[in-house]
């Protein structure tokens, strides 16, 4: 058995792998947008007054939190085309990006919904009453008073959700999209499986750097946003 490793080559691999970073970024940003929009709708549903909609929203969140991302990818990528085929719709030729983005968008939307719900509930009830007491409408009170405070509360959680989403983009290779991990796999298979360890470590380091940057960014944003008006301790 040959266990010779060439760790000095890792930076070179990192540079090669980074050529696929725009694909990773595209997946991240589009699925982030979807997850925020969908998450907002689900959060609103779960906080609403209609029992049926509350139940559906809660069920959606719970379902998405129970299913492994990989299984959801398989369901959408392998299963969905079969179902739609039965209905006479052919989506098997669709861009593979669609499937990974849809999976991550759906999956993350549940986390986003939970985040928004928790942040909304964390805003003191008196704030809404005070807004009403000066004559605001519900929508105005949300826009001017509740949302700005909830956003500040949600920032750390939002950072976490984005980091998790970013990590999950690594499953894009499953449907054959060449993101950074896909690129790493392509490099190793081009050299017949040699240097596997080096390329995976190189990919790991890229994820590490970006995650640390995202984390710092989130902390910075939180600091700027809540400057001078920390949540009251009580």
């Amino acid at each position: 058995m040959n266990y010779s490793y060439d760790f000095a080559s890792i930076p070179d691999y990192m540079i090669k792998i980074m050529t696929a970073f725009p694909v990773t970024l595209e997946i991240l940003l589009i699925s982030l947008l979807i997850s925020l929009l969908l998450g907002a709708a689900v959060a609103a549903g779960s906080l609403g007054r209609k029992p049926v909609i509350v139940a559906i929203s809660r069920g959606y969140i719970s379902f998405m939190r129970g299913i492994p991302t990989l299984v959801l990818i398989f369901l959408l990528y392998l299963g969905l085309p079969q179902i739609l085929q039965g209905c006479g719709v052919n989506i098997s030729s669709w861009n593979k990006m669609f499937f990974i983005i849809a999976t991550l968008g759906l999956n993350t939307s549940a986390n986003m919904a939970e985040m928004m719900r928790a942040a909304y509930l964390a805003v003191d009830k008196g704030q809404l009453e005070a807004a009403y007491s000066v004559g605001m409408k519900g929508t105005t009170a949300f826009r001017r008073i509740i949302y700005p405070q909830a956003f500040g509360i949600a920032i750390p959680m939002l950072g976490n959700n984005i980091i998790n989403l970013f990590k999950e983009t690594s499953l894009a290779f499953t449907v054959g999209v060449i993101d950074i991990l896909g690129k790493a796999r392509a490099i190793t298979s081009a050299s017949y499986g040699a240097n596997k360890l080096e390329t995976y470590i190189a990919t790991g380091i890229i994820f590490w750097i970006v995650c640390v940057a995202l984390e710092q960014g989130s902390k910075y944003l939180e600091g700027v946003y809540t400057k001078g008006r920390k949540q009251a301790a009580s």
């Binding site: 008196g126 704030q127 009453e129 007491s133 004559g135 605001m136 105005t140 008073i145 500040g152």
Partner: peptide
């Protein structure tokens, strides 16, 4: 209304708190 727990808008300065009703409502 004046509240027991003040309920000043936590995301606004004192001046903004007082202005808010005039401007928005």
């Amino acid at each position: 209304m004046v509240f027991q727990n003040y309920n000043l808008f936590a995301n606004m300065t004192i001046l903004q708190n007082v202005m808010e009703g005039l401007v928005t409502v």
